[in-house]
């Protein structure tokens, strides 16, 4: 493609050569770059498949996940129509894994989405306003930072008591500080750039600058970081239910299944590993997709 630079009066100056095509909007560009990233696409498809299976679990699961049977306890993979065998109460593993995806994905996504909204906004405000507002917000976050995230999740959900909702609240609280810090760091960097100054010089208000200029630049690092937290959230939720906090039996949940099956590890090691494998695949997928997003969201690539 040949392009032309014009001089001030609009006359063509000289021909330049370039291989670039005219870019479309930002998100269209992200989609275009993703289209050639087959690894990321594959794992997006995998996550979508798992999510669909979880949503349509009643249609897919061959058996009732809560129907136990003393006869069919801990049967091996492929035993009499139990494609993935049965657990210690004789419930069908495939059905339980399919249903378990519902709980695990919800425990993975909800806290991250909530924490992104809350932590991200706090970080944006702290970063843009600076001064004592920044000090107040960021020092509060530092207090949370002083504890390891697992310990914090256990402590909060221990205080609140068991149950799904309390588990979600605990995880959300755990993820707010790191997200807030990422948003604040990115905002501080953007705030000092000349284009923000130029926007102020053209009479724009702080809200307009935050929403039009800052958010656009901060959203990428925050979203990328958030997507990498999903796997952490699934693992933490699994850890909570393993400890008897968060999701309670007999709900089908990967973490909980891992916890209850551990006693049978010498009888059916393969079956005991299945919920762990599910957690591993999902968290790995989210991590890889997060890496892919990082590349796709960079306008320069």
């Amino acid at each position: 493609m040949t392009e032309t630079t014009l001089d001030a009066a609009g006359r063509p100056l000289a021909a330049e050569t370039s291989t670039r095509a005219a870019p479309a909007g930002y998100w269209r560009g992200v989609a275009r770059r993703l289209r050639y990233d087959y690894v990321t696409l594959l794992f997006i498809a995998l996550i979508a498949a798992i999510a669909l299976a979880a949503i349509f679990a009643p249609l897919i699961a061959p058996f009732d996940p809560y129907k136990s049977s003393m006869i069919y306890r801990l049967k091996p993979i492929g035993y009499r129509g139990f494609l993935l065998g049965t657990d210690e109460l004789g419930r069908d593993m495939l059905s339980r894994l399919t249903y378990g995806g519902r709980s695990s994905l919800m425990m993975g996504l909800t806290p991250v989405i909530l924490a992104t909204a809350i932590g991200g906004s706090l970080g944006l405000v702290a970063g843009y306003l600076g001064g004592w507002v920044n000090a107040l917000i960021m020092r509060t976050m530092d207090v949370f930072y002083a504890f390891p995230s697992v310990l914090l999740a256990v402590a909060i959900s221990g205080t609140l008591g068991g149950g799904v909702v309390n588990g979600l609240i605990a995880l959300t609280l755990v993820f707010i500080p790191p997200l807030c810090r990422v948003a604040e760091g990115a905002t501080t960097q953007i705030r000092d750039r000349d284009f923000v100054e130029a926007a102020r010089a053209s009479g724009a208000s702080a809200t307009s600058i935050i929403f039009y200029h800052v958010l656009r630049n901060v959203s990428a690092p925050v979203l990328i970081y958030a997507s990498s937290l999903i796997s952490v959230s699934i693992l933490l939720a699994a850890g909570l239910s393993f400890l008897g906090l968060g999701v309670e039996p007999p709900t089908a949940d990967w973490g909980l299944m891992l916890s209850t099956l551990r006693q049978s590890i010498y009888v059916q090691p393969l079956i005991c590993a299945l919920p762990g494998l599910a957690i591993f695949i999902v968290s790995l997928s989210f991590n890889l997709v997060s890496d892919g997003l990082r590349q796709a969201m960079d306008v320069r690539s």
Binding site: P23, Y26, F195, A199, S202, R216, N217, A220, V299
Partner: peptide, 18 residues
């Protein structure tokens, strides 16, 4: 001086829109 995530036409149009 330019927002890296805005097409330049949008950067120029920002002031009048404000």
């Amino acid at each position: 001086s330019l927002n890296p995530r805005l097409p330049i036409q949008a950067s120029v149009a920002y002031g009048p829109r404000v």
